[in-house]
Nucleic acid binder design. Structure first.
Lengths: 214, 214
DNA sequence: GCAAATTAATGATTTATTCAAG
DNA sequence: CTTGAATAAATCATTAATTTGC
């Protein structure tokens, strides 16, 4: 099964850039569609290790993937919103003609029990501004889509002050089942967490931690 | 004698943000002034460990410090450049012998220290609004200080075909002395002055690495 | 069919902006 | 107000698609 398709990404010291396999892309997209937009460092770690069975991959790849994917989904969305907006004048189509690629869950609803720990990132479907005023290039009034997101999570979980983030291990990153099985973590990964200091606190921050293993 | 400062940063689990000591700041600024603008992961590691003797510090602190310092130095510089630019019209040799009827010229050639307050409308020099990328409100034509190559130099030197100059290796970051002497760095960091070729070579991936120790 | 030449996608970096602690 | 921290936007750079002439 795993034999043939590793060509693209498995070149280890190939040098240049990561070339994700279909499976990797698939899983990443699934996670994204399930609401994971900005994974924490721990989450990235877990994802990375899960995806490694499909080929060479590093944490930074996962990190970048989410960054880029989020950004590009956003700009695509913006475009589509503009188009949708103008299309209203052409032929009156419903505001939500087809299921835009917004965020909404794909084909199947995920099993209720898993529900993916993380706060799914608000539905974000703020189409149709209806503002007769002056929009510039984007119809959407403000895409400050990060609004209350970033710091609030810190307070929510408050990782730094007392490493209570341990509860976070409930995030259950992989109820996902794209092709492979990859059952829940079963306490395998959690490599970095048990440590007392847990140092880095994942606090929204990604990367970094690493720098110092203390 | 250092009084209260040290405890500020030494508080390990204090929770919030890093509070650098004077020594730490000092050393960081020295490094910066010596030309180190964007340290690599390894460099950050080294710096961090060196600076730890003065108090609690993590790699991300060093990373952020350089990021912020570079950005804020840049914008300060930008301001100063604007001022310098205007000052050219105020005093010093006129580029245009006779005062054009356009803008300038109050009544007489102004005494050197008269400050002609507001920026009159200097030529404006076409701030190139096309690029969404940079340029905000600066006269300076954009110092893209990293300016690699507009796609053309590549062919010139043909770097791509083979890896990135991985020879980069480790530049011995620390001829620097904790006390602040920092004698010459022996041609590693090489002051970032002139010559575009200089520093941006140190990239070699910042942060990230860590995610996976591979 | 096939490579060279273009173009489109997208991985990887850097820069600008924002938020909030002190 | 200063500045550490974090994220988003812009940009660079490389790989995959694709076109094109043979």
């Amino acid at each position: 099964m795993e034999g043939e398709k590793n060509l693209g990404s498995n070149s280890p010291a190939a040098g240049s850039r990561w070339n994700p396999t279909k499976e990797q892309i698939n899983m990443l997209e699934n996670l994204y569609m399930q609401g994971l937009k900005t994974p924490s460092a721990q989450q990235i770690q877990q994802i990375t290790e899960k995806l490694r069975v499909f080929g060479h991959i590093e944490g930074k790849n996962v990190f970048y993937w989410f960054q880029n994917h989020k950004a590009r989904q956003r700009q695509k969305q913006k475009q589509e919103n503009n188009i949708a907006y103008f299309s209203r004048f052409v032929h009156t189509t419903p505001v939500f003609p087809t299921c835009q690629n917004v965020v909404c869950s794909p084909y199947y609803v995920q099993p209720p029990q898993s529900d993916l720990g993380f706060y799914s990132q608000y539905p974000k479907m703020a189409v149709a501004p209806l503002q007769p005023g002056g929009f510039k290039t984007s119809i959407i009034p403000k895409n400050k889509d990060r609004i209350m997101n970033p710091r609030s999570r810190i307070e929510e979980f408050d990782v730094i002050s007392n490493k209570k983030l341990s509860n976070q291990e409930t995030l259950d990153l992989f109820p996902l089942h794209p092709t492979g099985i990859l059952q829940a973590k079963t306490g395998t990964i959690n490599s970095a967490e048990n440590s007392t200091s847990d140092n880095h606190c994942n606090f929204g921050s990604h990367f970094y931690d690493f720098f110092e293993s203390q």
